[in-house]
């Protein structure tokens, strides 16, 4: 039996909590939260205007052709169903595009120095290609395989044919020389899930509808009123944007 938390979540409001919390050492504030995060002025109320265009939904890395392949693939990995939206509606392919355009796509914080040797599976990825290059090759190979097998590009196939292509990659039935087909699939699957569930600030999980699918409340400051409850407490999710501007 679900219940809502209306009237409870304000029991410990962030402001009140910060005012009461004493991160104090002999008069010296050690935490610093209390001073700097509190706004003295309330933010202006949101204006009643039509929803603005989503400027985030434009490509930073993929070509339109690449985007069509990835968008179709994410939707098969996490399809729309009676539970609610799938990866396409949630913007997962835009999320992946934006991620590949930045640090993650360049493996900026990974050790990418040589020499490069093939290793044991237990030693992890040992290739010299970066994630954006793996995606480039993987997407091209998905289209190649689809064309060879069905005479159409991946995003033009029927859903069950698309599933068959993805399964062939997942099981390494597609033989590739430059990348591992299953390694690419694993990355595609993992980044699809990230696009479904990461905070909407990254371009996926549109309107927090990914979180709503599994009743995840997003960014909440406190669950002290929930933590001991025997019944499931369903609440409207909040995003990091809400946190910064709310």
């Amino acid at each position: 039996m679900a219940q809502t938390n209306e009237g409870q979540e304000q029991a410990v409001s962030r402001r009140k909590f910060l005012k009461n919390s004493g991160l104090v050492l002999g008069g010296l504030v050690v935490g610093g939260v209390a001073g700097s995060l509190l706004r003295t002025q309330a933010p202006p109320p949101p204006a009643a205007a039509p929803a603005p265009a989503d400027f985030n939904q434009a490509l930073m890395y993929f070509s339109p052709e690449q985007f069509r392949v990835v968008d179709a693939a994410t939707e098969r990995i996490f399809p729309e169903d009676e539970n609610g939206p799938g990866a396409r509606t949630l913007g997962a392919a835009y999320f992946i595009d934006h991620q590949l355009a930045g640090d993650w796509g360049f493996n900026a914080r990974d050790y990418m120095q040589g020499p490069f040797y093939p290793g044991e599976a237990t030693q992890g990825y040992q290739g010299r290609l970066r994630r954006r290059e793996i995606f480039d090759i993987g997407i091209q190979e998905m289209n190649n395989y689809s064309t060879t097998k069905y005479g159409k590009r991946f995003y033009e196939l029927e859903a069950d044919q698309q599933d068959a292509v993805l399964k062939a990659f997942e099981a390494d039935e597609v033989k590739l020389t430059t990348i591992s087909a299953s390694g690419f699939f694993k990355m595609l699957r993992a980044s699809t899930m990230e696009g479904v569930y990461a905070d909407p600030l990254y371009g996926g999980n549109k309107n927090m509808d990914g979180w709503r699918l599994k009743n995840y409340p997003g960014n909440q400051m406190a669950y002290t009123q929930v933590i001991e409850q025997d019944q499931f407490v369903k609440m409207e999710p909040k995003s990091l944007r809400d946190h910064q501007h709310g």
Binding site: G32, A198, D199, L201, L240
Partner: peptide, 18 residues
Amino acid sequence: KTEDYFMVHDELRYALRY
């Protein structure tokens, strides 16, 4: 410092991008 964690409830940034 503690202020650094104002936007800390970000699973992607902290838990998956380290």
